[in-house]
Design a protein around this nucleic acid. Sequence first.
RNA 1: GCCCGCGUGGUGGAAUGGUAGACACAGGAGACUUAAAAUCUCCAGGCUUAAUAGGCCGUGCCGGUUCGAGUCCGGCCGCGGGUACCA
Length: 844
Amino acid sequence: MSLYDPAKTEPKWQAAWDEAGTFKATMTGDKPKYYVLEMFPYPSGRIHIGHVRNYTMGDVIARYKLATGHNVLHPMGFDAFGMPAENAAMAIGGHPKTWTYENIDTMVGQMKPLGFGLDWSRMFATCDPEYYGQQQALFIDFLAKDLVYRKNAVVNWDPVDMTVLANEQVIDGKGWRSGAEVERRELTQWFFKISDYSEELLDALDTLENWPAKVRLMQENWIGKSRGLEFGFERVDGEEPITVYTTRPDTLMGASFVGISPDHPIAKKLEAENPEIAAEIAEMRKGGTTAEALEKAEKRGVDTGIRTKHPLDSNWELPVWIANFILMDYGTGAIFGCPAHDQRDYEFASKYELPIVPVFGEEEITEAFVPAKTEKVTFLRGFAGATEQTGDEAVDAAIAAAERDGWGSGVTKFRLRDWGLSRQRYWGCPIPVVHCDDCGVVPEKKENLPIELPDDVTLDIPGNPLDRHPTWRDCACPSCGKPAQRETDTMDTFVDSSWYFARFTAPDAKTPTDMEAASYWMNVDQYIGGIEHAILHLLYSRFFARAMNITGHLPDSAREPFHALFTQGMVTHAIYMTTGEDGRPVYHYPEDVELRDGGGFLKDGTQVKIIPSAKMSKSKNNVVDPVEIIKAFGADTARWFVLSDSPPERDVEWTASGAEAASKHLNRVWMLCDKIGKMPADYAGRDNEELMREMHKAIHDVTMAIDSFGFNAAIAKLYGFASTIAKSDAGTNEKKLAIKTLAQLMSPMTPHLAEDIWAHQGGEGLIANAPWPVADEKLMVEDSVTLPIQINGKRRGEMKVPRDMPKDEVEKAALAHEAVVKALDGGQPKKLIVVPGRIVNVVV
RNA sequence: GCCCGCGUGGUGGAAUGGUAGACACAGGAGACUUAAAAUCUCCAGGCUUAAUAGGCCGUGCCGGUUCGAGUCCGGCCGCGGGUACCA
């Protein structure tokens, strides 16, 4: 008996696919096209098991679509700019570029043996000058169409290292290297005008029928359309009124104070004039910029001394406070505080002993009362609408009243902010503009692109090396030719990943895209990636597709670039952590940790802290390298194993237990094939009809499962079908057909083994190109079904009846069933429910 | 804090509102073998019972809708993702 040897067969079939150009994407013939894309990886060093899972899913779809007669585009590349390369250069020396390209080589070397059906000829990395040069061209075109502009925005500022920090580099409000308390500081930065598209990006979500509902909901909430009232608080001192925006104008009679952001113009003016307020604002500016940090920070405020008049009662004066929880970039940067019906206002008012006056509900209040706006409440101090009304009705009535009396107007606002793309970092795409003393900010000429990053930089001291490079900044003004200076900010890496899918359609084009290729291949028919990208990456890409359409780089039909989206779950693993001498966490690889006595220990006996179940991430070292499984069992086993058991959309805690069993099963299938190959050609068998029925059921079920991303379900069916073939006493012809069909159904998951079986059974050509089998529904039908019998909803028996037995006969048969007779005890059933082919329920 | 998910045997998980636990892993028993490996067969949610039959309980917790709820609704608890400079 010959054993299946993946180490020999897998490279053989990979070479055969290469030679036949099986996965090279072409636009030829009249076949329909299919573009399947998995989110490209960051080249962190080595691939981990999460990558294997993700790319195997995409490959199953790609191979299945190839077999169902499509021109398939299935490319791969690398999202290669970003902080980890700089961090590596700081930590271990070397150059980000070297580190990145070496990682890419390693990862490609690990991916190729997995046998993915990828068109490798289209591969690129976003740090290739050929790619980012085209990205610079896009930026210049966006600039010309007013899709990019400059404004001030806050960043995390490390006052010791004198550098901007990423949110990830701020730990508990302190800089990760210096340990200094981080401050929020304003810088002039570049922004994409994504907020101009808020309404369109929101409305178009309804057209994305093949996206998960949860992703659409998350984007809807992120865009955050709201209707509210904008109005001015007149100042007692007669200065310009303070304009506020509120989504709860119906609570205006519960107003307790007017709050403004520390970044509000009034606050800034006071900061410059009044040292006490300046000191207080300096305190408020401490800490990082994340929404989480701002929301969780203790409420803090300072009375400006300014007094305003309540719009409904000019004798009612309200104080103006600067409050740390009010954001300048949402609404107008100013609010009125209604502590009775807003949790944050309640905390603030309690702390500073400001009045808390309920508008609806009960007079006595011990916490903020915030019912859903759809709920009906009784108003104690309403000023518009009925006494009893829902929040929504009250808001509408309040806006109508304000508009009627002319002191405010209803407005629609969005939470979505413009996309800040400036990064004060080296390893990113240079922003192609020049600062000229005479001409101002001028875009670079396209013929000068790409503006390449200089190689001769050092990252041993904090800050952006482009700023301190002796010559790189110096250039001629593209407009007047006088000496000028380059922009030293680089682009957010989200820019790189917002159009790579379009570039894959023509990766060598001398313009960002080639319209013919883009029109043929776009949109991505099936996009696959992690749920962690549900908002930012996918929203930015949707914006970019629109911007690229406006600038003539994508057809109208590609404004929504991803036809269908599947979000796979993450592979998680415990994090093993110790604390370094400097007090900062040190993360250890799973293979360096031994688990015993309910704890984890390093080789030197040090106990590690175990943080259970977190997303595999290079920065936490909780990654598992698939190389051991591939070495021990081959690519097919790894592919089969990562798809089996867990539903693809669910997170899965990694464990290798079961990999060996998966390998054994594949071997069993091979031996079954070998055995069938040795059957006498004329053996007639007995179970032919039954085997053919099971085969057609398997074709049907597996096809359905693949179509709906139920890979684990497909694999469960394939286990069953393999076992059916093994046990069946069918004839040689039937068995050969069955094993070839099994191989075809397995081929998207275990392509090498499938090719081998196909060849062994004399299949024509490559199984990768063989047409997908089609189930004959007529051959799937069984004549009888087993109906469970319930009494009062609990299963008490079952009966076997002909599939097409009429309902009244089923009823009769059920009533004659011994369990029913016993339960009725001579009486009549209260109700009898018969669901044909499913169930009988007798209510007694 | 806010937004979005998820929660089923020892484990991964299955189940168009219709027999909860398919299919696997780990485990147990057996067959084959001098032995081991490999392979094959069988058992297996919990409690009750000598065992079987039967009965009771059971899909994070509490409540609701329904002839019938893992599935739908409301409230809680726990875990995960995102939170605009990690990618």
